[in-house]
Amino acid sequence: MRIVKRTSKYRLITGMERVNNRLTRWALRRGLAPKAFALLETTGRVSGLPRHTPVGNGLSGNTFWLVAAHGEQADYVRNLLREPRVRVKVNRIWRDGTAEALPADDVDARSRALPYRWDAWIGRRMATAPLTIRINLDN
């Protein structure tokens, strides 16, 4: 695995996101969050434990699209690159799938195609190294 240096912009943005992510994760676990959000479960690459990350709801049929604003700087992306089997909780339902990073994908076009555009707009403004992730859902 290659080493990805975290930028100062990444540290600043993620510092601000920390509180929001805790509140959103709490609401998603209880089915109280807006439909614009989903909960991604990855396996910790060091601990092997489940890790939950709030993400924008990119469900489209049996595919879940995700634009990771910080790419491989983000721990959840590092986790799914190590272990691509993930789960996504959308609308109170957990679905299993396999994640795949798509570094050649046009992240701006992809984020504009996501169902909740205001969330994608915010993500584009905060992004440091955006990366498209496709999750092929089992059912």
Rank of each mutant, 00 (worst) to 15 (best):
L59A: 11
L59N: 09
L59V: 10
S60R: 14
G61T: 02
G61Q: 04
N62L: 13
N62V: 09
N62E: 12
T63Y: 15
T63C: 15
F64P: 01
F64R: 07
F64G: 02
W65H: 04
W65R: 07
L66V: 09
L66W: 10
V67I: 09
V67Y: 05
A68M: 02
H70R: 01
H70D: 03
G71P: 06
E72K: 15
E72C: 13
E72L: 15
E72H: 14
Q73D: 07
Q73K: 08
A74P: 02
A74K: 01
D75N: 06
D75E: 09
D75K: 02
Y76M: 06
V77M: 04
L80T: 01
L80Y: 02
L81E: 01
L81P: 01
E83D: 14
E83N: 14
E83G: 15
P84K: 10
P84E: 09
R85L: 15
R85S: 13
R85V: 13
V86M: 00
R87V: 11
R87Y: 07
V88E: 00
K89E: 00
K89I: 03
K89H: 03
K89V: 04
V90N: 11
N91G: 10
N91H: 12
R92F: 09
R92C: 06
R92M: 06
R92V: 08
R92D: 05
R92Y: 08
I93Y: 12
I93Q: 13
W94K: 11
W94D: 02
W94P: 05
D96N: 13
D96A: 15
D96Y: 14
G97S: 05
G97F: 08
T98E: 01
T98K: 02
T98M: 04
A99G: 03
E100V: 14
A101L: 11
A101R: 11
L102F: 06
L102P: 03
P103R: 00
P103N: 00
P103F: 03
P103Q: 00
P103G: 00
P103W: 02
A104S: 09
A104K: 08
A104Q: 11
A104V: 08
D105I: 13
D105W: 10
D105R: 10
